[in-house]
Simulated assay, not measured.
Amino acid sequence: MTRYVLQRFAGMIAVMFVVVTVVFVIVRIAPGDPASVMLGPDATAQDVASLRARLGLDRPLVVQYVLFLGQLARGDLGESIFLNRPVLSALADRAEPTFFLTIFSLLIASVIAIPVGIYSAYRRGSLFDQATTTLAMLAASIPSFWLGLLLIQFFAVRLGVLPVSGYGGPGASLATRLGHLVLPAVALGVVSSALILRFTRASMLDVLGDDYIRTARSKGMGEFRVVMKHAFKNALIPILTVLGLTAALLVSGAVVTETVFGLPGVGSLVVSAVLRRDYPVIQGALLVVAALYVIINFLIDMLYLAVDPRVRY
């Protein structure tokens, strides 16, 4: 088991090193001078040279890369050009809406997809199975921002039961802020549930026909216990994998949804940074999202130890 953990941890470090290198290269090879783009066409040559020196862009590329690695090792993602504050601090201030939106969306997707996927596999070929498969394909093809606009039109504008946008005022309570996340969480959760449902159904179908399932039934064990204790437990690894990938996708895919609902999250910060050409913020956000991907995958690998005893050996 220790060897398994060390291998996964070493793989996580290697992937992060590659991601850091790719992000560094992408920012440096982008068309145009980053300093000139950030300052705009009215900037003087002296202003551009000053900003290049401040960002370290006037140094050799190898030196920039070494300094960049040292900066990351200290937990420093640089300083935002327009916000005049550390990038890590700016991302941390915007993390709460994105964090709760991701958690709620994943919960909604799991509550919808896992039970429906299990029952659909159990009733394979039935009208329920065909209907849920069709609806899953339909949900997967719906853009989350379009579904969000429909939800706003019906629940916020027509019925007036939920807020249209925003995250509450500065003094708003946590309950008020969470109320603003209902519609965006539903929009993201419904779309994300399609992938989880299909993986759950396929994984359950793989194990429902195995010999140990027939043996459990031949011993007179109840159907609910057969399906949940034996089949579902052995089908968990693919389901955990897709849940982890979905969580990571929700973090990175919340950009458009946060913009539609006016949420002051990481997504809206990235959009404004792209429009302003604030490269330190864009670079820092890319690294944070990539790190979340890697960490979530590592945690899923650790969950395999608890779900499948064979992994320990």
Rank of each mutant, 00 (worst) to 15 (best):
M221A: 11
T200E: 02
S193M: 07
S192G: 03
A172Q: 05
R158W: 12
A131N: 04
I213M: 10
A172E: 11
L181E: 01
I152D: 05
R214L: 14
M137Q: 14
G168M: 05
V186Y: 00
R198W: 06
A113F: 11
G179L: 06
I213L: 11
E223I: 15
I103Y: 03
A121S: 08
G171A: 09
R214T: 15
S126C: 10
H180F: 05
L107P: 00
S105N: 09
G179R: 08
S141L: 08
L183Y: 07
P163A: 07
V191H: 01
R225A: 15
S110I: 11
G166A: 04
S218T: 14
I196G: 02
L183I: 07
L208H: 00
D129V: 12
S110D: 02
L138W: 14
T133A: 11
S120L: 10
W146F: 14
A139I: 02
F145W: 13
L174M: 04
L147S: 00
P143A: 09
T200A: 03
G189N: 02
V186C: 00
G209K: 06
T132E: 01
R124H: 14
T102C: 12
K219E: 08
R124F: 08
L107C: 12
W146E: 01
T200D: 03
L208T: 01
I196Y: 06
D206K: 10
A139F: 14
V164C: 03
L135C: 10
L183H: 02
A156D: 04
R201A: 09
K219T: 01
V164W: 00
D211W: 10
S141M: 13
R217P: 05
E223G: 12
S218M: 12
L197Y: 09
D211A: 13
A216T: 12
S126N: 03
L174W: 09
R124N: 13
A202F: 06
L183D: 02
E223L: 15
R198A: 02
A156H: 02
L159R: 12
Y122M: 15
Q130Y: 05
L174G: 00
M221L: 15
T133F: 09
A121Q: 03
D206R: 09
L159E: 13
M221Y: 11
A175M: 15
M221H: 11
S144L: 07
